[in-house]
Design a protein around this nucleic acid. Sequence first.
DNA 1: AGTTGCGTTCGAGCGCGCTCTAACCTTTAC
DNA 2: GTAAAGGTTAGAGCGCGCTCGAACGCAACT
Lengths: 162, 162
Amino acid sequence: MNTTGVLSSPARRQALADSYQAPELPPPAPELLRLLDLPANLPETLSIAEVAAVTGLTAHTLRYYERIGLVEVARDESGYRVYDREALARIVFVTRLRLSDMPISTITHYINLVNQGEQTAPERLLVMQEHRAMIRRRLREMSAALALTEYKIATYGGHCTP
Amino acid sequence: MNTTGVLSSPARRQALADSYQAPELPPPAPELLRLLDLPANLPETLSIAEVAAVTGLTAHTLRYYERIGLVEVARDESGYRVYDREALARIVFVTRLRLSDMPISTITHYINLVNQGEQTAPERLLVMQEHRAMIRRRLREMSAALALTEYKIATYGGHCTP
DNA sequence: AGTTGCGTTCGAGCGCGCTCTAACCTTTAC
DNA sequence: GTAAAGGTTAGAGCGCGCTCGAACGCAACT
């Protein structure tokens, strides 16, 4: 039973699904890109299906993220998850880091530092600086691979010699 | 017994290892970057350890790549692998594609097309065009993640809200 | 001749990041 | 009332890309 009046009604679910496009699974990256600028007209709290709809993650993955301690999610009287703005922000943050291939272990470490308070700021800075170096390296590698791919396309098939 | 005179002597192995830096495993990406411009003074044929030294892959991985059909490698009289220039080029090519996160199944498919001859050029082109689109998407995602990381660094730690 | 080290094959194992199943409960629609 | 749709947990399973172990062979050095 829902006495708070904030849980998802079918109409609301439908509206959310419509306004953010139902996630079609084969190409997952486009809807993940939406994360980089989330719509501002979101309700105060969201159900797990709604978070899944706006983030492009599956409900399974959201439960998994909670299980491994990446986010804490409140429950209603029936035990259903209730994602508030903070929880959603955390999910979005984690998803962005995942998009740049930060290992979950590193994200967990970083979030543990955050939970420990402000005195861990220097170590957090270090984590992010290392991550920046990794991203830059990967950007270089991907750019080189893009050049190779462009070359292959330009030569229309070509052979297996680089 | 080695009657060809091309197999690795300890001195040659040493020289190769010296001239290309022994691979130190914790950060694997730097030596993989070397692949993007291989040194030109390579011998005609290489042993598996030598290929490992110049590519940064492990001998285990090289055997694995051969096992799954990504490359064919000749043997000497004792059954040892002998990598000629063509095999090395293939390994380098595969490694570049892997660096851009092309799945091994796609690489296998592409290489099968190459082995089937010139009439598969159109399909190969398609494969590469799709791969290019994937690389471009990933470059955008990584750039966005870089921006987030720079922001975190600029605000020195910050919170878990993006 | 013996030791050391690089090579071979086959097959199992592993770490990561999900992904799914089973069994069960709550809410909503008809 | 009943069925459908969505939620819960705990735990197993999976696909990928290696990675490693075992048992053995060959080669070079001393």
